[in-house]
Nucleic acid binder design. Structure first.
Lengths: 191, 191
DNA sequence: TTCAGATTAGCACTTGGTATTAATACTAAG
DNA sequence: CTTAGTATTAATACCAAGTGCTAATCTGAA
């Protein structure tokens, strides 16, 4: 009895936590113990068999994948776009977007929503942000629904640039505003 | 032969893409066809059995979990911090961070790195960004390593505010600069 | 009709287990 | 020393979800 039973079971938990892909045979080798012993240990600890472990890891993955498709790249669902004129998007703030310490949304999420919208409203293969000035007017919290409105300034600038103003609100109250100077390659003809 | 073979195999791919948890029996029921036919289809399409599918989904999950722990919240690894003075972080740009259309990094990632760093350099429970002005000097591409340097301006402002300047470079060449006006609750004593 | 491709069936074998029962080893107490 | 008690190992039957293979059946078109 190299390692006492109790300790072995403890090690077993953390071992499978790190690597859920081990068969009982692998584990038996790892602890220099018989396969039957491993099975008993798993039974006592309520640890499911390999295939069940993989199933749960995989299903967790599927959930997260769906979730990240909604949030990761989109940063707010774009609701309406009138190209080269104005656009609107909404962004639901969740626990994932806030500082744990104080529950306030990290600034870069608000920026990401606004900036993405500014890019989207200019229907252009190469719309890049050049300069930008921002104002975070009021803290945003988990559960808030942020509505961003982008408006393209119609004044024509030299050197292929356009200014987009974005104002974000939560329940009609302004929380963020930004001015984005965008560079574009193909200037749209009249519209 | 309700659905022709070719089409059925096509449907099979997308079906398992959505839900990899189906057994051959499930699939057979879904297409009103025998289990053997399903096996043949999987063989021809090179689709592995249920347990192999789950294994690969699960292993992908493990990789991504490790990856996201490094990237998700951090947006650049913070290398060095001298509280209330200066800080440095690096951020490796991958394919996930760029526009597919032109391979240029989305602005909000550069902003996120800089803004996170500005928050981190002020050791404060409640450091919030109030205003900010940014300049995206040069496009950043996948594979670039962005180094951000934050410096806290030592001039004391009234009303609990502090200015942090951040300059980001790729191979010593400036790509981004930002000025962050931060609001803080607890003002640090002398340092 | 006949023939090819598609489909179905049957059987032996594999992995990684569960469930159960029995045998062995080692200690600790009476 | 015996005996109970725990831990470990072994042995056996069984299951799910397959693979691999061979053979039979169906079906549509030349």
């Amino acid at each position: 009895m190299k390692v006492p039973k109790k300790e072995r079971q403890h090690l077993l938990r953390s071992l499978l936590d790190e690597d859920p892909f081990l068969t009982d045979e692998d584990i038996a080798g790892h602890f220099s113990v018989s396969v039957q012993t491993v099975r008993l240990d798993r039974l006592e600890c309520g640890i499911p068999e390999l295939r069940e472990r993989l199933k749960s890891v995989a299903s967790q993955h599927m959930k997260e994948t769906v979730k990240s498709l909604q949030t990761e790249e989109i940063f707010g669902e774009i609701i309406d776009v009138e190209l080269d004129d104005k656009a609107l998007s909404i962004f639901d703030v969740t626990d994932d977007h806030v500082f744990k310490r104080n529950g306030i949304a990290r600034g870069h999420h608000l920026f990401a929503q606004a900036n993405s919208l500014a890019v989207a409203v200019l229907d252009d293969d190469l719309a890049l942000t050049v300069r930008s000035s921002l104002h975070f007017a009021k803290p945003v919290k988990a559960g808030d629904r942020v509505v961003a409105r982008a408006v393209v300034r119609q004044e024509t600038l030299k050197n292929k640039s356009t200014v987009v103003d974005v104002i974000s609100t939560v329940e009609s109250e302004p929380v963020f505003s930004g001015e984005f100077l965008m560079y574009r390659t193909t200037k749209k003809a009249g519209k």
